[in-house]
Amino acid sequence: MTTPPEICDTGCGLNATLRIISGKWKPLILFFLRNGPKRYGEIKRLIDGVSDKVLIQQLKDLEADHVLARTDYKEVPPRVDYALTPLGRSLAEAIVPLCTWGTENASEMASIFAKRDASP
């Protein structure tokens, strides 16, 4: 099986991955859903600082990219939850080492961010 040229020529898979997880909140959404389905309100509480508009759009994007499944239970009051698809689960697991790296380097990164934020 050959790799499509548009993937190889632009980073051998990295470009495709970044197209899926682009956006400030998508990696966090995937990370928090890796332990099971969550309702919208749960996701909103877990991701500090995200607006409703942006969160809704990013959830729709992930659903369109087939990494997230939205289940509407057709109940009153409305009940909807979001869960990872098998493709989404594999992507979420790929994000875990990045979380580990961030934790292991948190103090150094805090220093770098402080210096960068202090620059004019």
Rank of each mutant, 00 (worst) to 15 (best):
A94W: 05
R89F: 04
D72Q: 03
P86N: 04
E42W: 01
A92V: 03
A106T: 08
K74R: 15
R70C: 04
V76G: 04
T2K: 15
G88Q: 02
A64Q: 12
L30T: 01
I20E: 00
A94C: 07
D9Y: 11
E6M: 10
Y82A: 00
G49R: 05
T3P: 02
L87D: 10
N105M: 05
R70G: 00
Y73I: 03
H66E: 14
K115H: 07
I43V: 12
L55R: 09
M109F: 14
V76T: 15
I43M: 05
T103G: 09
P37S: 05
E75Q: 12
L55E: 07
V67K: 01
A83P: 00
R45A: 13
A114H: 04
S90Q: 14
P37E: 06
K44G: 03
S22L: 08
P27S: 09
A16M: 10
G49V: 09
A83M: 04
G88W: 00
S51F: 06
N105D: 04
V96C: 01
D48G: 05
T85D: 06
Y73K: 14
D48V: 14
I43H: 00
E104V: 03
A94V: 02
V96L: 09
S90L: 12
I47Q: 06
W101A: 12
R19M: 13
A92H: 00
V50M: 04
T10M: 05
S22Q: 15
L98C: 09
D61S: 14
L98F: 10
D61Y: 06
C12N: 13
A94L: 11
D9K: 12
N105R: 13
V67G: 03
T10C: 03
P37M: 06
R45T: 10
D61A: 12
G88I: 01
P120M: 08
S119A: 15
K26M: 09
T100E: 13
I43A: 01
P4R: 14
A110I: 10
L87G: 00
F32D: 03
A64P: 00
T103Q: 09
V67D: 02
T3D: 10
E104H: 12
T2A: 15
A16E: 12
S22V: 13
R116L: 09
P37T: 03
P77G: 02
P4L: 15
P97R: 08
F32C: 02
L18H: 05
R116T: 06
P37Y: 05
K44V: 02
I112F: 11
V67Y: 03
S22Y: 07
A64T: 06
E75P: 00
P78S: 07
T3E: 13
M109T: 13
V50G: 02
T100Y: 07
A69N: 11
K115A: 11
Q58Y: 08
E75K: 11
R89W: 00
V96R: 08
V67I: 12
S119V: 02
G36C: 05
R19S: 14
D117I: 05
K115Y: 03
D48T: 14
A118W: 01
K44T: 06
A83E: 10
D61I: 11
L30R: 02
K60T: 13
T85V: 04
R45N: 10
D117L: 13
L33C: 04
A83V: 04
G102V: 01
K26R: 15
L68N: 03
L46G: 02
S90D: 12
P37H: 06
D72T: 03
T3S: 12
P5E: 15
M1G: 15
R116F: 10
F31W: 12
N35C: 08
K60C: 08
K53W: 07
F31M: 11
D65C: 08
